[in-house]
Design a protein around this nucleic acid. Sequence first.
DNA 1: CTGAAAGCGCTAACAT
DNA 2: ATGTTAGCGCTTTCAG
Lengths: 325, 325
Amino acid sequence: MATIADVAKAAGVSISTVSYVMSGKRAISRETRERVEEAIVQLSFSPHASARSLASGSNSVIGLQAPLRPGVDAHVVMEIVAGVVREARSHFYDVLLLTGDEGEGLERASKSSLVDALLVMDVAYDDPRIKTLESLRTPAVLIGVPSEDVAITCVDFDFEAAGALAASRLAELGHRKVALLGAPAEVIERHTSYAKRLSRGFARGCETAGIAGSVHPCPAGAEATSVLDTILSNDADVSAIFVHNEAALPHIASHVETLASPPQMIALAPNEFSRNVSGLSDLIDIPAERLGALAAETLWRLIEDREVSPLTLLKPHLNSQLGAA
Amino acid sequence: MATIADVAKAAGVSISTVSYVMSGKRAISRETRERVEEAIVQLSFSPHASARSLASGSNSVIGLQAPLRPGVDAHVVMEIVAGVVREARSHFYDVLLLTGDEGEGLERASKSSLVDALLVMDVAYDDPRIKTLESLRTPAVLIGVPSEDVAITCVDFDFEAAGALAASRLAELGHRKVALLGAPAEVIERHTSYAKRLSRGFARGCETAGIAGSVHPCPAGAEATSVLDTILSNDADVSAIFVHNEAALPHIASHVETLASPPQMIALAPNEFSRNVSGLSDLIDIPAERLGALAAETLWRLIEDREVSPLTLLKPHLNSQLGAA
DNA sequence: CTGAAAGCGCTAACAT
DNA sequence: ATGTTAGCGCTTTCAG
């Protein structure tokens, strides 16, 4: 591979001139710049990432700790990751994938200067990784909202508002008794932040609207239908359900169609996913790609030492399908 | 952050001794080693990744180009990625995520020495990235099987054998007319290698078994059920279906349960996913995590200059659910 | 068994 | 507007 010295020689200039042509950090005469640029193309030169990083003290790589745990919605995770990568690339950053849910990987990446900054997904309410992050001096952003006073910048979808929105919408449609079919029990047991906030918002929204709302963890797959059956048989007055569980939604939707008096059904899921499900009267989108992009952009501002609000939440929007069929 | 010089000073040895203690590349007296190791712990020293990479010429990072495209099965992708990361970490490699389906990212990562090796997922039959990879001298492995003579090492699940296996199993169960409900049309139009091979194997298997088999692209979601309805209404003799479409499977399965004379149904999907679907008589697992691990291990052998077979296929296994309920 | 020192390829002062 | 050069923190000869 060609080095910067080769380019300099080919262009008949000094090494630093080549460097400055590339970085644009000082004025270069048109003529010189063109000669250098041509040499770069001719030699098909790419600066050596490690050399650059060693000299400059930053390597244009961010670390992303993604869950890949059972029970998480694969589409949501993938879209978030896609959003992160897209936004990162737009700032010329690359993304290093750190899995495992321990702080160990974060620490390793930070201390060896593998990454300039860290992004952590799937944060639990009381997540041990937070302490780890606080002890590092690598800028970090959490996707999720842990307990109130955390020194790390957070971004997320506003699950609490989404829960409240769903409740008020169902009340508006005239329902008096409604149910939330949410994440699997295993997710809730991990105290995953979004599950908690969604049910809180839903409960509060029901209260505000003066209707009765119950919350039910929901297994993935066909078993979910029996949860629904139980709810309906225990209380025939439940006339609408709000589903937030990607792996259960298709089964629930199909099952609802076979019922004599089917409950009305609204869902919280990526629009792209919900659109493949029939029988939903309203959707609330999980803007996962945008969330990933927001996280990356926030991280980037942090890297650049710009001001950043400690918590940013993406507001939910109702997408009514009524009359769409 | 502490540097190797700090450690050397603290331990009262030279820099090179510290380096050799860490790499184990030359004999060190027990006493010296212990002193150095203690200093490392005391100072909480982590070698600077870029410095190491610059000096050694390799950085223990592999690049993974994952699709994140519409129509791919999110669970499969995530499991493959998880397998790659797990196996890579077991060899002390990290994984850099390159998205986009162009060769550009691969080239950039290779030429700037960002990565030691490349892993490319979701390979199409005639994929432009192959030419790119062949022009680089970075070791590479494809997950997928493009056209016959490609100079890049490939690994994949044996979709062709899986298709044949499904066909022969259905014949064995007494069916004379069967249908494959496969990937969405958009995936097939990309000439995605696995879709092609699955149908080929299925068709061949049907022929061998002397039964009639048809192949149908299948949209994601609830629309898939109308594909099934069309198949069945066009030919009432179709008595069994073989489904390979994660996003359609739950809908199809639920729909089948409502039919007067439901066809028998077998599926190709990750076992973990299929288990959430009711009504399947047999499963064929897509061992996605193992596939990712295999890919990473193959890449590692390539990096280490060990012999590597140009094509490795994971064999399918039938997992009968009959009588399991 | 251990040290000294020459790079690895680049950035960013410090010259002029 | 351009050139010279001292590092960045490590690996690895070469010397002992």
